[in-house]
Amino acid sequence: MSDVVEEEGNTVDEAVKGALDKLGAERSQVKVEVLREPSRGFLGIGGEKALVRVAVDGQHVEAATALLKAVLDALDLEAELKVEQKEEHVLISIKGAEGLGLLIGRHGETLSALQTVVTTALRRLGGAPRIIVDIEGYRERRLENLEKLAKRAAEEATTTGRPVSLGPMNSYERRAVHLALKEDSEVVTHSEGEEPDREVVVVPR
């Protein structure tokens, strides 16, 4: 599956809609590249329409789903896979089977392993959209917890005037912590150490 269409429109949105009609695809199934932003020109002269390239991108999602199904089969789990297009990535959620905790693992270790294998496999296909795998909302909950943890660490760093280390985390989790404290004017964050023990340190300004 790899259909590509270039389409013009008065706005980027309009161009994308036109392209989707031609492809018979939905927004969640495609990758959009804006080739030209629309411009007004002067008094209606010299204006240009928006130009987009829209590509059906089922290949990566299909490959990822196939791998996940193989893992679920091996574990004898009948779970549901839900694919959602998010702003920066495609989210594949695994839901609805007893015993999925086994696939999350201690501190999400097995989920991380699953993500590593999926990401590595997709990299071979080239130009991949970022695909994130989640199980029973584990990542979402973890992200919320990380935000709380980050805020507490920031408070501690500010009141004690000392740096606070948050313990080893994977890159996805470290990023979440950096983002959570990006706007905080009282502290700065950086990462220290080597994988897999790399950790975020929150330092008072």
Partner: peptide, 14 residues
């Protein structure tokens, strides 16, 4: 290989 081992381990545990 660590990721592969950890997935295989999950199946083995089961």
């Amino acid at each position: 290989v660590k990721a592969l081992r950890s997935l295989i381990k999950a199946v083995a545990v089961k």
